[in-house]
Amino acid sequence: MFAVYAAEANPEQPLEALRVGERPDPELPRGWVAVSVRAASLNMHDLWTLRGVGIKADQFPMVLGCDGAGELADGTPVVVHGVVGDASVYGDETLDPRRTLLTEKYQGTFADTVVVPERNVLPKPEELSFSEAACMGTAWLTAYRMLFTKSGLRPGQTMLVQGASGGVSTALVALGRAAGMRVWVTGRSEEKRALAARLGAHETFESGERLPERVDAVFETVGKATWGHSMRSVRPGGTIVVSGSTSGPDPSADLQRLFFTQIRVVGSMMGTRDELADLLDFCRLSGIRPQIGTELPMTDAPSGFAQMLAGETAGKIVFTR
């Protein structure tokens, strides 16, 4: 079958490990289903896989792609949930110490076919296209969990999203606006800030700019480059929700400010199957849709990877079959 895959790990030059070509057809274990992929979206996790982060050397070659949408053998349209874990024991599969994501242990969605456990497919709402549905399982699910499960925000409160144009950030803007939050966003360029405004941000600011007032919660996916600003921008007793550190971890946590102002720092990772089902319903009922900045045929996947590596994103990058 056709696939986009990592041939090996290359920490310094990740795109040199990227391959586009033929891979063996997947086997179908008992209790698993095969999904004919119609669309799949690119995530930062795919670049980390190319660098060798979160994957063992003997797992290569590895088909990339954490999420996607397609059809079962009988033609049923479905959305793929990329977290493979035991929800029956832990309730929340993201807390299963043996849980994994597609592309870490199991082959991913950038292929003609992906196989996943039966519980890892959900019905695709008719209102969402395959490309829109393909954005839900990683970036949008991560944003949904950060906002609705982890932050404790209520409608009318103010949230700050660090970084204006990535998949999680654009999802947070759309979800926060639809949920009745006052949404503020930082961005490195006027173009990125304008994108956030078009998606519903009430105010946009330059990266590191002092805000008019402190916010109730900050949503942090950038890490070292924005952490100090996040700590200064949240109100006493407020919350910082962290789901990534694309600019690297910050060795200085500013613990004195943390305990003196009683800031709550909350980690968040992906989301559960039930949260994905709720997210799909929320999008269907509210009418919000993911911002797709680039849509390419899967054969042109290297162009999409190059855009993400250069930080030239304006929403989600989607590959179609």
Rank of each mutant, 00 (worst) to 15 (best):
R273K: 15
A179V: 02
F2E: 10
W48E: 12
A17T: 10
R210G: 02
L50D: 08
A87Y: 07
D278S: 10
L141S: 03
R119I: 03
S252A: 09
T272Y: 08
R19K: 14
R119E: 15
G166I: 05
G223F: 14
G304C: 01
D67I: 11
H81C: 06
D67A: 14
L42T: 00
V115D: 13
G287C: 13
V168D: 08
V222F: 04
T221H: 13
L285M: 11
I240K: 03
Q307H: 13
E312V: 05
A194V: 04
E275R: 07
L28K: 03
L147E: 07
I292N: 15
F148R: 15
G287Y: 12
R119L: 12
G293A: 05
S243M: 08
R273Y: 06
H81Y: 15
A111I: 03
I240A: 06
T158H: 08
V168L: 04
P302D: 03
V318C: 01
Y106H: 04
P125H: 15
M159L: 10
G176L: 06
K56F: 00
G166V: 05
R119F: 09
P26M: 15
D274C: 04
L101Y: 08
G65R: 12
V183D: 09
K150V: 13
L72H: 08
V114Q: 02
E312C: 02
L15R: 02
L296M: 15
P26G: 04
S169K: 09
M136Y: 10
S189D: 12
L18H: 05
A197F: 08
T221F: 14
L199V: 03
V79Y: 08
M231Y: 07
G166L: 06
R98G: 03
